[in-house]
Amino acid sequence: MLHRRVYQFLIVYGLGLALLLGIKYLLDLSNYVIPGPMEIWTTCREVTRRYFADVMDTMTVAIIGQVLSICMAGFIGIVGRQTTWLGSFVKVAAYNVQAYPIVALAPIIFILLGDGFISRLLIAAMICYFPLLLSVLGIMSEPVRDIEHFYRNTGRLRWQLEVKIRAFENIGKLTTVVAGSATLAMAGTIVAEFIAANAGIGYSIRIALYQSDLGKILVALFLIGISLSIYQGLLEWMGALVRKAWESQ
């Protein structure tokens, strides 16, 4: 699944690049608007090392933010699965709050917390938290009746067992959601860096934008895409390992 993710990205990136170059040659655009293959290659050699470090910086923030989100979504999802007053309240609150665009809050976070690590982390976590929460809530509040019936009927269904049954039955969905949330965490971090931070690949893209240097942006996009594909592939692989380990108990 790792190599499949990378292949898919390379195909999509290659098609995108070909389209861009096609437009360039079709409309006879200058290298200033869309750089040619040689210019892109030269830019690539110049900035790859620096941009790779930036991508790793961004990715570190995104991963920490994603882990925080998973923990929070897991906790709230488990509380919100209940049919009690608290469970219903958590569910309704989660559905209502997620409707608000978190990116719109980013400036407030930067004003209050500055343009450092914490702001980037918070925005990354918040952006991937709500979709994760909704998925976890959906999975955790859906009873697996055919399995739970016996335990409920015999008074053995403690909350830990209930969560275990629901997680096990939906491990494929959970893995997909976690892998998908990596993109959101990365997007959140890049958006945060793009808005106001002073580090990371989002910050480098902002500078490239001010310089109108599409070559740099294309190199940044390639590095973001390939790193994210590898990370998502690793998450899926780990999900498959967890399932395998769980099933072989």
């Binding site: 019936h149 016996f150 015999t154 275990k164 096990f168 039955e169």
Partner: peptide
């Protein structure tokens, strides 16, 4: 009173013998 029906399933994380032992 217990009620059993034919579509019930046992969790898939361990062998059926283990499940029987646990209950």
């Amino acid at each position: 009173i217990l009620y059993s029906y034919n579509l019930e399933r046992l969790p898939g994380w361990s062998a059926v013998g283990k499940h029987l032992e646990r209950i």
